[in-house]
Amino acid sequence: MRVLGIESSCDETGVAIYDTEAGLLGQALYSQVEMHAKYGGVVPELASRDHVQRVLPLVRQVLEEAETRPEQLDGVAYTAGPGLAGALLVGAGVARSLAFGWGIPAVEVHHMEGHLLAPLLEERAPQFPFVALLVSGGHTLLLDARSLGDYSILGESVDDAAGEAFDKAAKMMGLGYPGGPRIAALAEQGTPGRFRFPRPMTDRPGLDMSFSGLKTFTLNTIHDLGGKEALSEQDRADIALAFEEASVDTLIIKCRRAMEQTGYKQLVMAGGVSANRSLRARLGEQMKKRGVELFYPAPQYCTDNGAMIAFAGALRMQAGESAELPIKVRPRWPLTELAAL
């Protein structure tokens, strides 16, 4: 089965073609980061307009790269949610129009399920059941993934997602947008032990998380040093290191508890923050000590991309799913509402 996937949930336009026998045949991605950076975050209307300009040229590019004609496709998959309503509508409208014109079915894909399944694109892939840590700018979840579509939430952030906290902390330090990669790079120059930030909600049982307190602690630390304008480059590096260490420690502690609670021996980590090198290295060490295998996608599949949508769509089409009229998108869509296949 050969499926065209379209991702347009936020500020990246991703298109890919996945074949269930031959694997990933072609992909292309356009990021709007530079456009939104001047505003310090994503502007929904600008994001939607840019998707309109980018998606069809990317589809043509990927069809050519994959040496695929429309009549060779078996379906079109698209992100139906969660995400920005306008951006989702662009991808959904284009995907459904192409599917109708080509006389093939379309299938809705949940954005976070796409992330969850992205590690299965790797040669070394996990097998159900496993625990999944989905950690991005919009979501931070620990899931019990029993089979395709059969997910239950073990724990989640009660306020900001981890990636969102990284972005806001970076903005406080004047590092620009997106903040996660900038904090990670700066943390490598930090002085260990100069600052120690709290590890929220780790002093009590349970798997829920909180990251908003780290933002407040960051703001107070900056204030104590005389404000953003008074920060030296070393001050910024030391704050970045303390912030990253606290965030990573919090995620590791919660993952350890999730593995103990479920008894599983496989942990999947996905989403934009899963590209953080410190998180990968330290979580890998902790899981190895406990006899747990850690899986995560290649860096290009951590952020939003069309490959994960094409892959997830192909799996759902194989199971007999297809989208019905009218075209709908779901800006808010709990992962637990998906049908188990």
Rank of each mutant, 00 (worst) to 15 (best):
T140I: 02
E245T: 15
L56R: 11
L29S: 07
E293V: 01
A323L: 12
A242M: 09
A132H: 11
E113S: 07
V248T: 09
D203K: 11
V268Y: 00
A161V: 06
L251I: 03
G5L: 06
L207A: 00
G26N: 07
E285S: 14
F217Q: 15
Q61D: 11
Q127Y: 00
A162C: 14
R330G: 00
L121Q: 10
L4C: 01
R282S: 01
H36I: 01
V94R: 10
A162H: 02
Q261I: 14
V107Y: 00
A95W: 02
A132C: 09
A28S: 14
A77W: 07
T262M: 14
A307K: 02
F311D: 04
I17P: 07
Y264I: 01
E67T: 13
A165N: 14
I309V: 12
D19T: 11
M317F: 02
D19V: 05
H115N: 06
V52F: 12
Y30E: 13
A339H: 14
L315H: 11
P326A: 05
L175W: 09
R69Q: 15
F197C: 10
G86A: 05
F211A: 05
G81E: 08
L315S: 02
P57H: 11
P178G: 05
V248F: 01
M201F: 13
Q234D: 13
D208Q: 06
V94F: 03
L294K: 05
E233M: 08
Q72D: 15
D19I: 01
Q261K: 13
G86K: 09
P331Q: 08
D159N: 11
S232G: 15
D150I: 05
T202I: 12
G272W: 11
V107F: 08
L335W: 08
E65F: 07
T221F: 05
A340G: 04
L134V: 13
T216R: 04
L294Y: 00
P70D: 09
R49P: 01
Q261S: 11
S322T: 14
G174H: 04
P181L: 03
G313V: 04
E188Q: 15
G93Y: 00
G114C: 04
V52S: 06
Q300N: 14
D203T: 04
G155R: 02
G5C: 05
A66F: 11
L251V: 06
V52A: 11
D19K: 08
E321W: 13
G213Q: 01
Q61T: 15
V329N: 12
R236E: 04
E244Y: 07
L117T: 02
E244Q: 14
K288M: 05
E122V: 03
D144V: 03
V135F: 10
E34D: 13
G75K: 05
P129M: 00
